[in-house]
Amino acid sequence: MLISLLFMVTISLDTVISHPQMVAPKSVYISPDGKTAYVNNLEGMNTLIFDVVTRKVKGVIKHIGKPVESCFSEGGRYVWISYYRLIGKGYPPCPNWREYKIPSVVAVYDTVKKALVRKVKVGVIPKIIEASPDGKYVFVSNWNSHSVTVVDAETFEVKEEIKVGWVPRGVAFTNDSRFAYVVNMGGFTISKIDVDSLKAVKVISKAVGNRPRHIVATPDSNYMLFSCHGDGYIRKLDIKADSIIDKVKVGHQPRTITLDPSGRYLFVVNYKSNSVSIVDVDLMTEVAEEKTGLKPVGCDLTPDGGELWVTDYSSGSIHIYKIQY
């Protein structure tokens, strides 16, 4: 257990979960009611559904593609799952992702019907999926299309494809759903999208850092925080000024990030350091670091902020930590 007396936050390992069908777990998403965790297994080509309290598998979603990331809509009824690429006839393997050119889909799982009910055609190598806070849209970043696909969250129809920077990944909305920010890993830039017009209206390039990967908004929407996979920093963007105002060094190759409900603490998984860091957002200081399994890549907090689930890509496991503030 690691305790920061100055910052009054503790992180301690509670349990480690493994499962025969958990192969290369890429991401984990905890439902808005805090009862269910969805773990996307890239090479296992499934999503394991866990009961958060018992930590037992209560369902399996089988896929025809490699599941990467997820988001929720309609209060958690629908789980959206991006397929890195489809598998099967007509979808040949491609060892070099930079050369892959075949569009993929986002699958939609209905938690009431307990079935996949839609497959929405998107771009090439879709990654992050993010629902707008007002529930109107779902945005999907497409690595090799260098675009964001906009889907109507109610009808599941594609409304627009917005060209952004090179190799986009992370997407985050302001809390009023007026703007979305997209971090472009390949271009070292951030694209700002006007959600009303569905157009990219600005490119932020100064001091963005090396390979920005994942981005989240603070609860007050004054700031965006994003991880830079290439240089090991978390950076803070002032939304009013659209400029980078601070940064803090964490572990090697920080990937997924998530904020506690208050917005005070940011949790960061460090892929090459095999660790999770906690950053005080107000002071932009790393206040704790705890070991994980091998190559942690995904993480999510329960809605009350009391548990952190981390997917260990190479260990094929989940580390669950207790968090106290």
Rank of each mutant, 00 (worst) to 15 (best):
V120M: 04
V120G: 07
V120K: 05
K121A: 15
K121C: 12
K121Q: 12
V122P: 07
V122Q: 08
G123W: 10
I125A: 10
P126L: 02
K127P: 08
I129F: 11
E130D: 02
E130Y: 08
A131S: 15
A131K: 11
S132I: 07
D134F: 10
D134H: 10
G135A: 08
V138S: 04
V138M: 00
V138G: 04
N142S: 05
S145D: 12
S147T: 07
V148R: 07
V148G: 02
V150I: 11
V150E: 04
V151N: 03
V151D: 01
A153F: 09
F156N: 14
F156V: 05
E157W: 13
E157P: 11
E157K: 15
V158Q: 01
V158Y: 01
E160D: 11
K163C: 07
G165S: 06
R169I: 03
G170F: 08
A172Y: 00
T174G: 03
N175K: 12
R178I: 01
A180K: 04
A180D: 03
Y181I: 03
Y181G: 05
G186Y: 14
G186L: 07
F188C: 09
T189Y: 11
T189R: 13
T189N: 13
T189Q: 13
I190N: 05
S191G: 13
D196N: 13
L198P: 12
L198H: 08
L198I: 00
K199T: 15
A200E: 13
A200W: 04
V203F: 04
S205E: 15
S205C: 08
K206Q: 02
K206M: 07
V208Q: 08
G209T: 10
G209F: 14
N210A: 07
R211Q: 14
P212W: 14
V216W: 12
A217Y: 06
A217N: 10
P219F: 13
P219K: 06
S221P: 00
S221I: 03
Y223H: 12
M224R: 09
L225S: 03
L225D: 03
L225C: 00
S227H: 01
C228H: 06
C228Q: 09
H229S: 00
D231Y: 15
Y233D: 02
R235N: 01
R235F: 00
K236C: 02
L237G: 08
L237Q: 04
I239M: 11
K240E: 00
K240H: 06
S243K: 15
S243Q: 10
I245T: 13
D246L: 10
D246Q: 10
V248Q: 00
V248E: 00
K249C: 00
G251R: 07
G251M: 05
Q253S: 12
P254E: 00
R255P: 05
R255H: 10
R255Q: 09
R255V: 04
R255E: 09
